[in-house]
C-alpha cells in the first residue's frame, strides 16, 4: 500500500506545484491521475520515486518511509518501481536489448554493468520481456529505428525488468494516436490484472479514464479536487476539474 501524506512541492523559482496532497493506493489498483496540463501530475508521480524532492510531507510504501530514504536504500526502493514516460525516454542510440537490460541496473553490480557485461539469466529475461510486448525480433535494432508505439513497448519491457511492484506512468499515451493508446494501456492493464502490479497513471482523455481506471484522483493547481470511482466523473465533474478548457479536452476526445 502506498500512502501519500500532506505532500507539498515548491520549485526553487517559487512555483507551488503540489499543495497538501494526500491519498492512498491499495495494492493492485489502477489509479488514474487526471488534471489540466500544469496541474502537477508529473511532479506528483516523480515525488513518489523521488526523481523530484518533495518540499514537505511523507510518502509511505508498505510501511517504508520513501521520503526519508537516501543512497542505496533509495535506489533499492526505486528498482521496485517501474516508470513509463510520455516521451518514452529510451537511449536512442543504444540497442533495444541494451535499453531493456538497463532496467536491471538496480539489481546488478556496478563493475560488470559498467563493462557492459550481463548475466545470461538477465539476457534471457530481457528477451522474455521483449517477447511479452511482441518485439523480440527487434532486440538488436537501434531504439530510434522503432516507431513511437514500439518504443513505448520497449519502455514497458524495461520497466518489467525491474520486477516492479508498482508502475508509474506519466501520460504514457499522450504522444500516440488513439489506436496505439489502447494497445499500450492494455499492456499496463494486463500487468495490473495478471501480475498484480499496482499502476499509477496520468491520463488526459475521459474515455481512457473510464475504460482503464479502477479509481481516479483529479488535481487542479496542485491540489486534489476529486477522489473516487471513474463512473462518478460525469460531464459536470469533468467541467469542474478542467474549467474553461473542458471543451478543448473533449474536442481532443472525439478526435
Amino acid at each position: 500500500m502506498l500512502e501519500v501524506q500532506h505532500l507539498h512541492k515548491v520549485y526553487p523559482n517559487g512555483t507551488r506545484a503540489l499543495t497538501d496532497v494526500s491519498f492512498q493506493v491499495e495494492d493492485g489498483e489502477f489509479l488514474v491521475v487526471i488534471g489540466l496540463s500544469g496541474s502537477g501530475k508529473s511532479t506528483l508521480l516523480r515525488c513518489i520515486n523521488r526523481l523530484i524532492e518533495p518540499t514537505q510531507g511523507k510518502i509511505l510504501w508498505d510501511g517504508t518511509d520513501v521520503t526519508a530514504a537516501s543512497g542505496a536504500e533509495l535506489r533499492g526502493i526505486r528498482r521496485q518501481i517501474g516508470m513509463i514516460f510520455q516521451q518514452f525516454n529510451l537511449v536512442k542510440r543504444s540497442s533495444v536489448l541494451t535499453n531493456v537490460l538497463a532496467g536491471r541496473l538496480g539489481y546488478v553490480g556496478t563493475a560488470g554493468s559498467l563493462a557492459g557485461v550481463w548475466s545470461s539469466a538477465d539476457r534471457a529475461s530481457a528477451v522474455r520481456a521483449l517477447e511479452r510486448v511482441g518485439l523480440a525480433e527487434k532486440a538488436q535494432s537501434r531504439a530510434d529505428a522503432l516507431s513511437g508505439g514500439q518504443q513505448q513497448r520497449v519502455a514497458i519491457a524495461r520497466a518489467l525488468m525491474q520486477n516492479p511492484k508498482l508502475i508509474l506512468a506519466d501520460e504514457p499515451v499522450a504522444s500516440l494516436d488513439p489506436v496505439l493508446s489502447h494497445s499500450i494501456l492494455q499492456y499496463l492493464e494486463q500487468l495490473n490484472r495478471e501480475e498484480k502490479i499496482t499502476v499509477i497513471c496520468s491520463l488526459h482523455f475521459l474515455d481512457l479514464v473510464h475504460r482503464y481506471a479502477t479509481r481516479v484522483i483529479a488535481l487542479k493547481d496542485g491540489e486534489v479536487v476529486f477522489t473516487g470511482l471513474p463512473q462518478e466523473i460525469d460531464k459536470a465533474r469533468f467541467k469542474e476539474i478542467y474549467g474553461e478548457d473542458a471543451i478543448e479536452v473533449k474536442a481532443g476526445l472525439s478526435a
Binding site: 526523481l51 518501481i81 516508470m83 525516454n89 537511449v91 536512442k92 543504444s94 536491471r104 541496473l105 538496480g106
Partner: peptide, 24 residues
C-alpha cells in the same frame, strides 16, 4: 529524458553516466 529513466531504475551515478549519458 533517458537519464531520468535510467535513474528511475535504481541505477547509481556511475551507471547513469554509463547508460544514460555516454551513449548520447
Amino acid at each position: 529524458g533517458p537519464i531520468e529513466a535510467i535513474r528511475a531504475t535504481g541505477a547509481n551515478w556511475l551507471q547513469i553516466v554509463r547508460y544514460g549519458v555516454l551513449p548520447q
